[in-house]
Structures are given as structure tokens and as C-alpha cells.
């Protein structure tokens, strides 16, 4: 009927930028590293093989930590009590991502990597719904070519 002026009850830095895509890319990177580890061939050059494998493990470790960090920032800074009323399982989901991120470091299991990506995608879907942005499921245009939830921009 009529528009009211707004008064700001804002938190954090105004216009803070939050986006779960960094966590999704990190989860895809974990899966990619696991794929590379599983397909690496131990040829005649033993040193080169171990060098490659060490790099895959190091990147997997880094990306799993990055995935956890990116989700933890959104969870801790952006998510507010009113969001938890609408999404009561959000704490459980965020904790699940923390545990799956740890498992991704501990193991070289593609299945666990996919579980991490699925949980991060679920978190992303809720995040964009809170922001009032429609989402779509798309296939990443690079290996490992898995599905990710992305905003319709």
C-alpha cells in the first residue's frame, strides 16, 4: 500500500560479500585430486611418480581446508538465528561439512569427496534461498565435471 523507509540493524561490514562458490570449487578440487591419485601411473621414473602423488595429496589437503574455511565463514558470520528457525538443520549440515572436509584429508576415497560436494551443494542451495536468489544445477565445465548448485544470475 505504501513503502516505509528502512532503518538499518546491520551486522558485520556493511554489504559484506558471501558466496559458497569458493567452497564448491574447493570440493571439486578435492575430487579432482582423488581422481588424479587413482589414475596416476607408476612408470619407470619412480621419483616423478612420488613427486606427482605428493603434490596431489598436498593440493587435496589445502582444498579440503579451504572448503571448510569458506563454509565456516558463511556459517559463523552470515547465518543468523532467524535463519535457523527456517532451516533448523543448518547447524547439523555445517558440522557435517566440517567432518566431511576432515575425512577428505584423511582418506583418498572418491565417495567421501562426493559426499563433501553434495553437502556443500546443499548448503549453497539454502544460502541462495536465504538471499532470495534462484538456483540451478549445472555441470562443472571442467574435470571432475560434477554437478554444482549455482545462482541464476
Amino acid at each position: 500500500m505504501f513503502k516505509l523507509d528502512e532503518v538499518k540493524a546491520h551486522c558485520d561490514v556493511p554489504c559484506g560479500i558471501y558466496d559458497p562458490s569458493a567452497a564448491q570449487i574447493a570440493a571439486l578440487s578435492v575430487i579432482r585430486m582423488i581422481d588424479l591419485m587413482n589414475t596416476a601411473e607408476k612408470g619407470a621414473d619412480d621419483v616423478a611418480y612420488h613427486n606427482d602423488m605428493a603434490r596431489y595429496v598436498a593440493v587435496k589437503e589445502t582444498e579440503a581446508i579451504k572448503c571448510k574455511d569458506e563454509i565456516a565463514i558463511i556459517w559463523g558470520d552470515f547465518i543468523k538465528p532467524p535463519h535457523l528457525i527456517k532451516y533448523p538443520d543448518l547447524h547439523t549440515l555445517a558440522h557435517k561439512i566440517m567432518m566431511l572436509g576432515g575425512a577428505a584429508k584423511q582418506h583418498a576415497s572418491r565417495e567421501k569427496g562426493m559426499e563433501l560436494l553434495a553437502a556443500v551443494n546443499e548448503f549453497a542451495a539454502i544460502f541462495w534461498e536465504i538471499k532470495g536468489v534462484k538456483t540451478q544445477t549445472v555441470t562443472a565445465p571442467y574435470a571432475p565435471s560434477e554437478s554444482v548448485i549455482s545462482p541464476v544470475l
Partner: peptide, 22 residues
């Protein structure tokens, strides 16, 4: 007298995002 709409969550649970105040 003035009416406003609250934007943000910093006063939750006293005031919620989108609530109108007198």
C-alpha cells in the same frame, strides 16, 4: 510519528528483519 521497516538482524530477537516499527 514515523513508521519504519527494520533491515538486518542485529537486534534479533527483539526486532526481526522486515518488521515494521512505530
Amino acid at each position: 510519528i514515523r513508521l519504519f521497516k527494520v533491515s538486518g538482524h542485529s537486534l534479533f530477537p527483539l526486532f526481526q528483519d522486515g518488521e515494521r516499527i512505530f
